[in-house]
Amino acid sequence: MFSRVIAFFVCLIAVLLPFRLRIVFAEFVGWVVQLFYGTYYGIINFILKELKKAEEEGKHGGE
């Protein structure tokens, strides 16, 4: 629901913008999303890596 509200406002702004400004706005949104997902997946990958490491250490410790 929250993401739909944000989507509505992003679309509302975009639809009202003239040609050049809409292009700049899309570019801005693109970089923001890229930054957000980059950070998100970076953290997830880090957690997964650490979990695997801990799992392997646990296995070796149990032997």
Partner: peptide
């Protein structure tokens, strides 16, 4: 990056 607004509209 122009697909971003389109993506927001369709997916979200």
């Amino acid at each position: 990056f122009q697909f971003m607004i389109f993506n927001v509209y369709v997916q979200k």
